[in-house]
Amino acid sequence: MADIVIADTTRRYDGRHLETHPLGGTESSVIRLARELVRRRHAVTVYSNCDAPVEDHGVQWRPITGARPETCDLYVACQHPRLLRFVRRPRRRAIWVLWQPNHLKHYKQIGRVWWYRPVPVLQSLHQVHIYSPFLPRRDPHILIPLGLPEDVRGQAPLAAPPPRRAIFASNPQRNLKRLVEIWAEKVLPRVPDAVLDVYGVHEMPADADFWAAWGGSLLPAGQPDHVRASVRMHPTATRTGLIEAMRGSRVMLYLGHKVEAFCLAVAEAQALGVPAVVAPVAAVPERVLDGITGFHEADPDRFAERAVALLTDDALWRRQHEAALRHQQGISWSEYAGRFEAALLADRFPINRSVLAVPPEADGDQ
């Protein structure tokens, strides 16, 4: 058993928030990994911007503003080089690169990275390709694609195609405005009864006038009534509600963003059997098998054509829906934790094979 410390300062949360609050990919990944490492018989403490000490699924959560641990077997800093010194003398230090790795070579950070020389853990080929040759590295890189939770994996094919609904389920700052422009100009005229459902909105009340608040910023200004009616803005949804919305959509539309290092939203939609049309930006195209479970299209006209096809062609939708269910299930968080453990601990601690025989439901976390 190893003593593992993880530190993350992305937002205010602890492990209980996975079931009670909307979380980003970083926070949910930290919680899921910590739980699985505990299940593999390790002692895990996560330091975050939580309000008070708490235990959740065997994981100890501690405020990062409190006392710092002196040592541990493995210390994992999430993303930020400034966290590398948080544990003074760990036996091994790693940095879990959940965003782009470019910031590691920033002139204010590169000194810290070289001083501590953490083992980088990456999650996409895109990260590998842009990882600076001037930074310390493992050769080969430790590359483990993020796990997918069991609630999106192993779904049966739908008996019939969903209605003509598309879905966007990311941060609205990630090119929603341009997507709605393409929708209004190139998709809706050809599929007048289509609807674009927008999820990922967490800071607005349900009765807010999104067009008045976001027109000209996150949404295009001056849109006619029929366009506004076709774009349905949804405030914070439950996890179950979001999964139901994805399964009830014919296609996920996403133009991508340069900061995407993995894109869990598209990965989860694909695992649920939702075809996707995405722009080939950053790590996003790694989540979609072009021509098989969706399409990669940089050109707006071609992007719109693919969206229209998936909204209207039942045979195409069926092929890609079933292909996504066959090929896009990803790895479980249990497997992710096993790979993580093997990459960072196997040379110092024997791998506990007995956990592989424990059914997932035995720990009450499924």
Rank of each mutant, 00 (worst) to 15 (best):
E19S: 12
P90G: 10
Y107H: 13
F210L: 02
G215L: 06
R138S: 06
I6R: 07
F134W: 15
G338C: 02
A307M: 04
P359T: 01
V251H: 11
L125I: 15
V38E: 04
P220V: 06
H202E: 14
E297T: 13
P90L: 01
D3F: 11
G215K: 09
R339L: 04
V308T: 13
V278D: 02
G256S: 01
R165T: 11
G66A: 05
V278L: 04
H226T: 11
V54D: 03
Y254Q: 04
C78A: 13
A309H: 13
P360D: 06
H321S: 03
L345M: 09
W183I: 07
F349I: 15
Q173V: 07
H80L: 12
P63F: 02
I64W: 00
A276N: 04
R326W: 10
R82C: 07
D51W: 14
L176F: 07
R318H: 09
D193Y: 03
A362W: 04
L84C: 03
A206M: 12
R339E: 11
P224S: 04
L311A: 04
E322A: 08
P161M: 02
E150G: 11
R92V: 07
I31Q: 13
P53K: 04
P300K: 03
L158D: 07
P162Y: 12
L316S: 10
P157M: 09
I351W: 14
R85D: 11
A283F: 12
L37S: 04
S28H: 00
Q60E: 09
G24D: 08
P285W: 07
L158Q: 08
Q100V: 15
R68F: 01
F168K: 08
Y107C: 06
G200V: 00
W214T: 08
D314S: 02
F340Y: 06
L264T: 10
K108I: 14
A271C: 08
R318E: 12
S170N: 15
D51V: 15
Q155V: 05
G24F: 02
A166S: 01
L264A: 13
F295C: 10
A160F: 11
A346H: 07
D299M: 14
E244G: 03
V180T: 10
L148P: 01
G25I: 07
R319N: 09
A276S: 02
A160L: 15
R287F: 04
A52F: 13
V30N: 09
Y116D: 10
T10D: 13
M1A: 14
P285Q: 00
R93N: 06
R85F: 11
G222Y: 00
D365G: 15
L188W: 09
R348M: 00
L255S: 05
P149F: 08
I130V: 13
L37A: 00
K186Q: 10
V87E: 12
V251W: 05
A169H: 05
G273E: 09
Y254R: 15
R306I: 09
P149E: 04
L143E: 05
S230K: 05
G294F: 00
Q366C: 15
E55D: 06
V59Y: 08
R174C: 07
A77R: 09
L125P: 13
R85P: 15
R137A: 11
C78F: 14
D197I: 03
E244R: 14
H129G: 13
I331L: 08
A298K: 13
V128S: 14
G111M: 00
K258H: 12
A52H: 06
Q79H: 12
D225P: 13
A206V: 12
A343V: 07
L135S: 05
E244T: 07
V128N: 07
E244L: 08
V180E: 00
A52Q: 11
P275N: 11
